[in-house]
Amino acid sequence: MHRMKPYQRNALVLTCLLLLPALLSAVWIGAEYLSPKARSTESPPLTADVYRDGELIHTLPLSADEKPRTFTVNSGEGDYNEIWAGEGGIGVLSASCPDQLCVKQGIREDSLLPIVCLPNRLVIQIREESEVTPDIITY
């Protein structure tokens, strides 16, 4: 076997360095979405936290006895997000942002991924009310 050139060795190292986070990501996503908890139908009561600019502005219980409600979060200069919250879910109905990604994220019913509207710096995070300790902490 002939000797590797330095750039070939570097390529090997870089590939390995890339494979590591890729594998971790795949395992993470698999564990989050295929875990029995994510698939269980009887979920604990959910609460949604609405943040604007990192500030908690609304806390909404998403239980069955709450009436579905719609409200608007204004983020200045005519920017807004119209939010619907009802039994077991929350989502953005309409927004002023150009990409409309927050609207396309639909009504979320789990705490896996927060709804984000980057242009309006709005984040909606669902959490499980009954749990005292969070199931995952990410930094």
Partner: peptide, 23 residues
């Protein structure tokens, strides 16, 4: 940037998706 602008640590949950999509 999202972490800095929104100041909500939960946005890091998107990282695995963004790493895979970046590849």
């Amino acid at each position: 940037t999202a972490l800095l602008l929104t100041a909500v640590p939960g946005v890091v949950a998107y990282l695995p998706f963004l790493i895979l999509s970046g590849i």
